[in-house]
């Protein structure tokens, strides 16, 4: 998993170098973008943490008392110094905050802008089950106990938008592999979209507490080659 994480990041950085973060279809890929931004943020935080951490470490060692009645000799600040020691760090911190806010916002727009050619699937959450309804009326589910059913099956290369609603309590549709999640609620429809760029089997887990079997409210998410997807659709239609 960890290897895959950095591999994904590597791919994304390579794509950045060519000028655009895009998958084969020229479409954005939020999951890859997430990894890129994560790396940036992580560096940012590590640098801040290291500066303050090392400073603390040095001072904790250096300023040990040498005799019991020694007292501290910290300089007192003049008014101008005090102001400078407040405003300069505050400005630097704020600048960093705005930098991260801007980066975060840009990616957020990617997350919320559904590509036009996206395939739509209706998701219904219930205690404790996911149900997927396709545009052509196919209904797919998954039974955690018998491991029967195929869950969410999507063709590689087509972005998928999920329109989600719950029939009872609040659930949340979380796909760690696609770096996305959103709550599924009664009485309102929420959406997420993702771009399955490679054939892969992963999981959707319910990530909002919903009672006894919350831990068992999961289903497979299968990104398969388009041909295999067509076959699956045929099979589901004939079974229905």
């Amino acid at each position: 998993m960890k290897g895959r994480l950095s591999a994904l990041t590597g791919i994304a950085i390579a794509l950045m170098a060519t000028g655009a973060v895009a998958s084969e279809g020229g479409l954005p890929n939020p999951a890859a973008d997430w990894d890129v931004l994560w790396n940036k943020v992580l560096w940012d935080l590590v640098v801040i943490g290291a500066i303050f951490g090392i400073a603390a470490l040095i001072m904790l060692f250096k300023y040990r008392a040498t005799s019991p009645d020694q007292v501290g000799r910290g300089p007192k600040l003049s008014r101008a110094q005090a102001l400078a020691w407040a405003l300069i760090p505050a400005t630097i911190f704020m600048a960093d905050d705005f930098f991260m806010a801007a980066k975060g916002w840009t990616l957020w727009n990617t997350y919320r802008t559904v590509p036009e050619n996206a395939m739509e699937v209706k998701v219904t959450g219930s205690m404790w089950n996911w149900e997927f309804e396709y545009e052509n009326g196919i209904i797919s589910t998954y039974d955690v106990d018998s491991k029967e059913g195929s869950g969410l099956v999507v063709p590689v290369g087509t972005p998928v938008v999920l329109r989600m609603e719950s029939i009872d309590v609040i659930h949340s549709f979380g796909m760690a592999t696609y770096r996305v999640k959103e709550d599924v609620m009664p009485g309102r429809i929420t959406y997420i979209w993702f771009n399955p760029v490679e054939a892969k089997e992963s999981w959707v887990t319910c990530v909002e507490f919903c009672g006894t079997r919350h831990s068992y409210m999961y289903a497979p998410v299968k990104a398969v080659p388009p041909a295999q997807y067509e076959a699956w659709v045929k099979k589901m239609e004939s079974e229905a």
Partner: peptide, 25 residues
Amino acid sequence: LFLVLIGGLTGIPLAMTSMTVHLSE
């Protein structure tokens, strides 16, 4: 002094809407 850095700084990615979409919950 170190714990406040680790705890506080890891709040930062959580604070970014797009990062949290993966990290939340």
